[in-house]
């Protein structure tokens, strides 16, 4: 089972209501993570404002922050390797990484990669 780590930007409310606008991606992603966990995925989220030590202790994350700054978050690692940065994964991506096959909910279909071998 792959281990997915999500390094979130610093937010006092991760729903983002403290910002100028609520980030839909954040709200949806929270729901997707919950769904993936229920389907057995191993996912951990770290909020920069609450657990900065988790960022500092991980070499990959720390050098990412030094290189690209916190504006480039979120950062997603799979088994310690950088898998995605700058946006949250879709439910389909999460499912693929976590190897969730039998899906009760319909997975939003991404134009190119869903189940085909085109990429």
């Amino acid at each position: 089972m792959k281990y997915i780590q999500v390094f979130d930007p610093a937010l006092c409310c991760s729903t983002g209501v403290c910002g100028v606008d609520v980030d839909q991606a954040l709200v949806s992603f929270s729901a997707d993570v919950e769904w993936a966990k229920q389907n057995g995925a191993r996912i951990e989220r770290y909020n920069l404002a609450q657990e900065p030590l988790a960022f500092a202790e991980n070499v990959a994350v720390r050098s990412f922050l030094e290189r690209s700054g916190q504006e480039a978050l979120p950062l997603i690692l799979i088994d310690g390797e950088v898998a995605l940065a700058g946006r949250y994964p879709t439910r389909a991506e999460l499912a693929r990484w976590a190897g969730i096959l039998a899906v009760a909910d319909p997975i939003p279909v991404t134009p190119c990669c869903s189940g085909s071998s085109c990429c």
Binding site: L11, L48, P52, F55, A56, L65
Partner: peptide, 17 residues
């Protein structure tokens, strides 16, 4: 614990939050 480990701008951002 992260003051000298993470870039200063990152630390400032966390403090503001």
């Amino acid at each position: 614990p992260v003051r000298n480990l993470l870039p200063e701008s990152v630390v400032k951002g966390i403090e503001e939050q």
